[in-house]
Design a protein around this nucleic acid. Structure first.
Length: 563
RNA sequence: AGGGCUAUCGCCAAGCGGUAAGGCACAGCACUUUGACUGCUGCAUUCGCAAGUUCGAAUCUUGCUAGCCCUGCCA
């Protein structure tokens, strides 16, 4: 079974339609829309994270499922927050995820002209007015959650006066904050968004895309429905906090009289338990140097997950497994880990690596002899081929694979016990050597030639198999193990809102030995290290000459020494 | 005179009036050139709580309770 089939099978398990799909099918059946057109509309003000991946994959997946189209759109209506550098990184992340916008890459800022015309239309309909109140006054006039607001004294200006004032705003006759354009809706609405929301503000600032062409910029609530309508989006999918904005969204598309108005549907954001997902907090971690950048493998930004070795397929699987709903929830990190293991296990070679080495010496193996063993790269996937591993008298094995006094059900090496050296021979432990600190440094064994792997030897069996690496040709490497950045015992935040950090979130092992085949491993290549999990070669500059491996994910938690 | 939304196993999540899907996690057994993987088995007499309607309610009604969101010239 190929890996692709495997993923498709996993997806097939998600049989029921999510509520958005149900809504779409209802719209299609009732003829509200004749096609499906979705979009992903980030503001280029930072890095995308796994929560965005959910939205991207949802929107793209919906378009695919219903044979529709998917647009990429930068919602860049606020020049104070946006930068070109984010635009490129966002495009890169989305392409990497596999969401294809084809030739439909748009910028909200390219619609400024149409948005201006639409505002003029609203003014002419008597549905918008220029307001001279200060920001503070507007806040006061807006009322509170429990008290209605009151009308602005400028609310009843004539159409002609509004037209002239708005034109003057555009011409740059006013300072920032001096005047705004407001929609005339209902100052006593229980929905704050409908209390004459501001739809245009003055901001004398260069825009990353339009430069100095404009000094007035539309607000999200006004701009977004127009963007969707212009692009003929049918289903405008966003997160739950915009539910209260939907009446305003509908007001805008209705008053502007679009023939086929788009429809906004909200779903719950994705959170991960005990993981920092807030952009503000991630930014602080980066600035404080707690992590080494936005792509630090302990973060869940898309660039971090990519650097860590997560694949687009694994993220897609994760998003599908999590599902879409309207209830606030937080997924277990274990589910994410499952997804990457699932994706990689048949795709990647299984190599041997010794992370905490002790020597194993085969006393009856001829000194100086080297033999090459041919081993499959992945015993469950023949397509990955075979490789040669040199075998000799002196090997490294992992410290945890030998115990002087083994507990019950310990199947690995201990004095008198016989185990299989993976892909090689059975060896029996005869003795061991300790250093002056009482640490085991050498284990002495004898091997049985008859037991060579692949010869069909079946006379006796062993309970344990251990991995090894030849001392003479092993590749020395630095291995980085990642744990949760957050102290799970204490929870993500303390009383003051600071993050409870886990001091052991990054462990660097400098004395690791890998099988010789890993000498030329390419950057971003990933492997399974038997018993240790999945690792990838880091592309970032390392502090040592040795190759650096990041642990993507460890093996399932039940894969441990006997209790 | 507040409004909107949500509540089904440790975590996600189906369910849409006919008697609680599935996945993750966890546990056990089998298999195994690693104890992983794979396979099998187990894991909610009960759906936030309380009344009501009904032959029948997680699904309908009413009333509570808890959580999230909303008073940016942010998105």
């Amino acid at each position: 079974m190929s890996n692709q089939d495997n993923i498709e099978n996993k997806e097939a398990e998600v049989v029921s339609k999510n509520f958005i799909e149900q809504e779409i099918e209802k719209d299609l059946a009732e003829g509200v829309y004749s096609n499906v057109h979705t979009r992903f509309p980030p503001e280029p003000n930072g890095y995308l994270h796994i929560g965005h991946a959910k939205s991207i994959l949802l929107n793209y997946g919906l378009a695919q499922k219903y044979n529709g189209k998917f647009n990429m759109r930068f919602d860049d209506t606020n020049p104070t927050k946006e930068k070109v550098e984010y635009v490129e990184s966002i495009k890169k992340d989305i392409e990497w995820l596999g969401a294809n916008w084809e030739d439909r890459l748009f910028f909200a800022s390219n619609y400024f002209g149409q948005m201006y015309d639409a505002a003029v239309k609203l003014i002419k309909k008597g549905k918008a007015y220029v307001c001279d109140l200060t920001a503070e006054e507007i806040r006061t006039y807006r009322g509170t959650l429990t008290e209605p607001g009151k009308n602005s004294p400028y609310r009843d200006r004539t159409v002609d006066e509004n037209l002239e004032l708005f034109d003057n705003m555009k011409k740059g006759l006013y300072q920032d904050g001096q005047k705004v354009l407001r929609a005339k809706i209902d100052m006593s609405s229980p929905n704050m968004n409908l209390r004459d929301p501001i739809i245009y503000r003055v901001a004398h600032m260069s825009h990353h895309n339009t430069g100095d062409a404009w000094c007035i910029y539309p607000m999200y609530d006004y701009a977004h429905p127009i963007e969707d309508a212009i692009e003929e989006i049918t289903h405008s999918i966003c997160t739950l906090e915009f539910e209260d904005h939907r009446p305003l969204y509908d007001w805008v598309v209705r008053e502007l009289e679009y023939p086929v108005p788009p429809r906004q549907i909200e779903f719950a954001k994705m959170y991960l338990t005990n993981v920092v997902t807030g952009k503000r907090y991630i930014k602080k971690l980066v600035e404080d140097g707690v992590v080494d950048g936005w792509d630090d493998p302990r973060l869940v930004s898309i660039s971090a997950l990519r650097r860590r070795g997560f694949t687009p397929e694994s993220l897609k699987l994760f998003v599908d497994l999590c599902g879409i709903s309207k209830s606030n929830s937080s997924a277990d990190y274990a589910m994410l880990e499952y997804c990457i293991r699932e994706d990689l296990k048949l795709k990647k070679p299984r190599m041997m690596a010794v992370l905490d080495p002790i020597k194993l010496i085969i006393d009856n193996y001829p000194e100086g002899q080297v033999e090459y063993l041919e081993v499959p790269n992945n015993m469950e996937n023949e397509e990955l081929g075979v490789r040669q591993i040199p075998f000799g008298r002196e090997l490294y094995i992992d410290r945890e694979d030998f115990m002087e006094e083994p507990p019950k059900k310990y199947f690995r090496l201990f004095p008198g016990n016989e185990v299989r050296l993976m892909h090689a021979y059975f060896v029996t432990c005869n003795s061991f050597v300790k250093d002056e600190f009482g640490q085991v440094v050498e284990v002495h064994c004898t091997y049985d030639v008859k037991t060579k792997c692949g010869t069909g030897f079946t006379e006796r069996k062993v309970k344990g198999t251990i991995h090894w690496v030849p001392v003479a040709s092993a590749v020395k490497a630095e291995v980085r193990l990642y744990e949760n950045l957050v102290d799970e015992e204490k929870g993500v935040y303390d009383e003051d809102g600071n993050i409870n950090l886990n001091p052991n979130s990054l462990v660097v092992l400098k004395n690791c030995y890998l099988e010789p085949n890993l000498k030329d491993a390419k950057a971003m290549d990933s492997f399974q290290f038997v018993r240790h999990g999945f690792f990838n070669v880091d592309y970032k500059d390392s502090t040592s000459d040795a190759p650096v491996f990041n642990r993507i994910v460890s093996l399932k938690s039940s894969y441990h020494l006997p209790k």
